[in-house]
């Protein structure tokens, strides 16, 4: 049986992770224009999945009684790729000239 403090730690990480994933989705749903919507998922989901994967790592390290590290690969991969895909989507949106919120200061570049 798993000790209580370990269970508490895993539960905490799981809840933090899913709450951040939910906040990213809420941001995607309710922010007014595309460039603002880009902020929610790129940040919140990386930390959200990061928290869940950390919980999985601790759980399987305890469960198999040896260090389980291949969950880290997913985290590394997400942390490297999230900015790249955000950058690509931002460039595509700038080229298509998506509607901007009226309060936006500054202008995007013409490509």
């Amino acid at each position: 049986m798993m000790p209580f403090w370990l269970e508490l730690l895993i539960s905490f990480l799981l809840i933090v992770g899913s709450v951040f994933a939910l906040i990213g989705a809420v941001g995607l749903y309710r922010l007014p224009d595309f460039f603002m919507r880009l902020h929610g998922p790129t940040k919140a989901t990386t930390l959200g999945v990061g928290g869940i994967i950390l919980a999985a790592m601790i759980f399987f390290t305890y469960h198999r009684q040896e260090f389980s590290g291949h969950e880290l690969l997913i985290t590394f991969f997400l942390f490297i790729t999230a900015p790249v895909s955000a950058h690509m989507m931002a460039r595509a949106a700038m080229q298509l000239k998506v509607r901007l919120s009226a309060r936006t200061q500054g202008r995007p570049w013409e490509e």
């Binding site: 994933a21 998922p41 999985a56 298509l96």
Partner: peptide
């Protein structure tokens, strides 16, 4: 999603959330 980039962004987020569900 009013524009195509919005839909791409939603699909990307959907992938990441599905990944979290699978790990769970």
């Amino acid at each position: 999603g009013p524009d195509v980039p919005d839909r791409i962004l939603a699909l990307d987020t959907l992938y990441i959330n599905a990944l979290a569900l699978i790990i769970l």
